[in-house]
Simulated assay, not measured.
Amino acid sequence: MTLITIPKNASTEAKLQALVDENQIVDAIHRYTAGLDFGDADLLESALTEDATVDLSLAMAKIGYEFPPLTPRSTIMGGLLPAVGPLDTSHRISNVRVAITGDTATLTCYAQAQHYLPGHGPKPEETRQALMMNRYQAELVRSRDSWRIQTLLIDNAWFSGDPTILIG
């Protein structure tokens, strides 16, 4: 569930637009994670502005790795998709909060991500995995056809498993 504040005296049109915007903003974070889960470059790219920055440095430092912020979108695509796309992985988004100001928005949420080596996820006997609960804070902007992530800061709340799965 997401929560936005809509003034009580807002027009019906303004209320409807706020709900449409909220839905599109949440969809951007789902496009981002689904793009990684399915190794879908078009879907991942559709979630990001051309000058986007994804900063995993806080999350990765907590599990013992240095990882610089990735920018622009082409660097994000070249860095994350080859690393995460081949894995048997799934992201679950929860506790979503959205604040909209004109054509910009802030989204915070949790993203729980389960990672297995390629082809190992469906095997019941497989125990080597990496499970992360991350906090996402995203700044988004309205584009012509949708909302897109301009900056995404990822911090780790907790981790379980083998971190080497994440770095190949």
Rank of each mutant, 00 (worst) to 15 (best):
Leu36Ala: 05
Asp37Phe: 11
Met133Pro: 03
Thr108Ser: 05
Leu58Asp: 12
Gln137Gly: 05
Tyr65Trp: 06
Glu126Ala: 15
Arg97Val: 07
Lys62His: 07
Met1Phe: 12
Lys15Tyr: 01
Ala61Glu: 09
Pro68Trp: 03
Thr89Cys: 13
Thr49Ser: 01
Leu16His: 09
Asp40Glu: 13
Arg128Tyr: 05
Ala41Leu: 13
Thr12Gln: 01
Ser11Lys: 11
Pro163Cys: 08
Ile63Pro: 01
Ala59Glu: 08
Arg73Val: 06
Asn156Ile: 04
Ser160Gln: 07
Ser160Met: 06
Asp51Ile: 02
Gly64Tyr: 13
Tyr32Thr: 03
Ala47Ile: 13
Met132Leu: 14
Thr101His: 15
Thr75Ser: 10
Glu139Ser: 14
Gly35Val: 12
Arg144Ser: 13
Ile100Asn: 03
Ala138Thr: 07
Met132Trp: 12
Gln112Asn: 11
Gly78Val: 04
Arg97Thr: 08
Gly79Trp: 03
Pro72Asp: 12
Ile29Lys: 04
Asn23Tyr: 10
Met77Glu: 00
Gln114Cys: 03
Thr106Ala: 10
Tyr32Lys: 02
Asp21Lys: 14
Thr53Tyr: 00
Ser143Trp: 00
Thr2His: 07
Val98Leu: 01
Met60Tyr: 15
Pro124Leu: 10
Leu3Ala: 06
Arg148Cys: 13
Thr106Glu: 11
Ala105Phe: 08
